[in-house]
Simulated assay, not measured.
Amino acid sequence: MTEKQSSESAGKKATQRAITALIVFLAVVVVLMNIDPGQAYPWIKALHVIAVISWMAGLLYMPRLFIYHFDAPKGSSQAETFAVMERRLMNAIMRPAMAISWLLGLYLAWTIFRFQGGWLHAKLAAVLALTFVNEYFARAARAFAKGNYLRSPGYWRLMNEIPTVLMIAIVILVIVKPF
């Protein structure tokens, strides 16, 4: 018989794999930051984009989980499963990806742009807003896990649009650099 994926054992294994991947990822980043900046730049930028994509995937998926969780009866095994999914998404993917996005983004902002440019300041403000959205989702996930179903599914559908709008603004700021 296969082990239930929401069990403690499966959760510990998933956490160990996530921690191992994070350590390897950070080790690669440290090595890259200590080589010739010209050679490191495209690699650090690529790793930054990978971290951002991972973070955005979580930001776009979490509200959908809240909608499904809202439909699950409080205290049911289905509600417990959603709580496990939300916690793992936040702790194993979203927060590590957010931290790596910030670390590498700030590194690039300093080494390449010296924090100069209105577009960069606007981008940082939008990324800060994404960080607040991330932490709002984390608080909501903890509340759902306790059986405090916050807001309606319609609210979470609307909240799903905020990371999308911020992502569009960030991409335009980075690619077009309008000011």
Rank of each mutant, 00 (worst) to 15 (best):
residue 1 M to R: 08
residue 3 E to W: 04
residue 4 K to Q: 13
residue 4 K to D: 15
residue 6 S to R: 12
residue 6 S to D: 15
residue 7 S to I: 02
residue 8 E to R: 14
residue 9 S to T: 12
residue 9 S to N: 13
residue 9 S to W: 09
residue 11 G to K: 09
residue 12 K to S: 13
residue 16 Q to C: 11
residue 17 R to I: 11
residue 17 R to G: 14
residue 18 A to K: 05
residue 20 T to R: 15
residue 21 A to S: 13
residue 23 I to H: 12
residue 23 I to E: 15
residue 24 V to W: 11
residue 25 F to G: 08
residue 27 A to M: 15
residue 30 V to A: 15
residue 30 V to N: 14
residue 31 V to T: 02
residue 39 Q to M: 10
residue 42 P to L: 00
residue 44 I to E: 00
residue 45 K to G: 08
residue 47 L to I: 05
residue 47 L to R: 06
residue 59 L to A: 08
residue 61 Y to M: 12
residue 68 Y to N: 14
residue 68 Y to V: 10
residue 69 H to D: 08
residue 76 S to M: 08
residue 76 S to P: 11
residue 82 F to P: 00
residue 86 E to K: 03
residue 87 R to W: 06
residue 87 R to I: 06
residue 88 R to E: 05
residue 90 M to Y: 06
residue 91 N to M: 10
residue 96 P to N: 01
residue 98 M to F: 03
residue 99 A to Y: 10
residue 100 I to D: 06
residue 102 W to C: 06
residue 104 L to H: 05
residue 106 L to H: 03
residue 112 I to E: 12
residue 114 R to M: 14
residue 118 G to Y: 09
residue 125 A to H: 10
residue 125 A to R: 05
residue 126 A to R: 04
residue 127 V to H: 07
residue 129 A to Q: 03
residue 133 V to A: 00
residue 141 A to G: 13
residue 141 A to H: 07
residue 141 A to T: 10
residue 142 R to H: 08
residue 143 A to C: 02
residue 146 K to R: 07
residue 148 N to V: 07
residue 155 Y to F: 00
residue 156 W to S: 01
residue 157 R to Y: 03
residue 160 N to G: 14
residue 161 E to C: 01
residue 161 E to Y: 02
residue 168 I to A: 04
residue 172 I to F: 14
residue 172 I to S: 10
residue 174 V to E: 07
residue 175 I to P: 09
residue 178 P to R: 14
